[in-house]
């Protein structure tokens, strides 16, 4: 009986795994086929794999520019939001200022606000600041969207730090910025990596804001470019799948090596 149950479980999990992975496999196998091969046999193995679609994407699409834009938008907004959120969380947990609990709780609510609700005013603001079609427009917006979860995350983490550690530093007369830098930060490494990954996934994958704010080819992010070129190349499945595969590659590689950071970070919001 136990044996039967084990087999049933393995079988269920194998089926679920196939369903989870198939759309990725379809993407890769299609990208490795020529257009004719795909039309003849969409689901078959790529028996004569070709890199032609990948070279074509790099040659005909501004995909390197898009990647660079995605990378810059991700790096800058993640770094800024992480740094200023650490500062704020430090003040919320270790300082005594009126309103810090209010700030913490408002952040919990802001985590759930749909970005689309902020889109029209932010767009108008960027128009008047002449930032449309420029990366700073999305960087400002993303930084704002990342802060609530980042503060929530660091506050919860800082509250677990033993008080004695911080008190000892203050007894030695260390100023606040030194306590933050030489007591708090050295023990926050793993947590910071976790948060950076979660935030980077969000920015790298974001479509709506990028679509609206970045309308010139030279300023688009990878996701916005991909969504736009979908319309233009919809009948060239292998080419589109090659581009799509390139867009999921960085995250997938990171995931294979740093899986526990992804899992821990993305489920952190579910604790307490």
């Amino acid at each position: 009986m136990q044996h039967v149950r084990n087999i049933a479980r393995q079988l269920t999990l194998i089926i679920l795994s196939v369903i989870s992975l198939y759309p990725v496999w379809f993407m890769l196998s299609t990208a490795l086929k020529t257009s004719q091969n795909y039309t003849l046999n969409p689901t078959g193995l790529p028996l004569h794999p070709t890199m032609g679609n990948f070279t074509a994407v790099f040659a005909d699409w501004p995909v390197l520019t898009w990647m660079r834009n995605s990378l810059v938008a991700t790096a800058v907004s993640v770094v800024i939001s992480t740094v200023i959120s650490i500062m704020a969380a430090f003040a919320i947990v270790f300082g005594r200022a009126k309103g810090r609990e209010t700030l913490f709780r408002s952040n919990i609510a802001l985590m759930a606000i749909p970005p689309v609700a902020l889109l029209v005013p932010m767009y108008m603001l960027m128009v008047s600041a002449h930032l449309i079609n420029q990366l700073p427009s999305v960087i400002i917006f993303y930084t704002g969207l990342l802060i609530p979860f980042s503060i929530f995350f660091f506050v919860n983490f800082f509250r677990e730090i033993p008080e004695e550690l911080v008190e000892a530093a203050y007894i030695d007369g260390a100023p606040h910025h030194r306590v933050l830098r030489s007591v708090i930060l050295p023990i926050s490494g793993a947590s910071t990596v976790t948060l950076v990954i979660v935030n980077a996934i969000f920015v790298w994958n974001e479509l709506l804001v990028a679509l609206v704010f970045l309308q010139s080819n030279s300023s688009r992010t990878l996701m916005a470019g991909l969504a736009l070129y979908q319309g233009r190349y919809v009948t060239n499945e292998p080419l589109l799948m090659a581009a799509a595969f390139l867009s999921i590659l960085p995250l997938t590689v990171l995931y294979v090596f740093g899986q526990r950071f992804f899992v821990r970070g993305l489920t952190a919001g579910m604790g307490k």
Binding site: S20, L207, M223, A244, S247, I248
Partner: peptide
């Protein structure tokens, strides 16, 4: 494996699903 889809960009996976 089951967690992987959650981290992948909906834009790219949407393209795959559209086919």
């Amino acid at each position: 494996i089951l967690f992987l889809p959650y981290i992948l960009p909906a834009t790219a996976m949407g393209l795959s699903f559209s086919y």
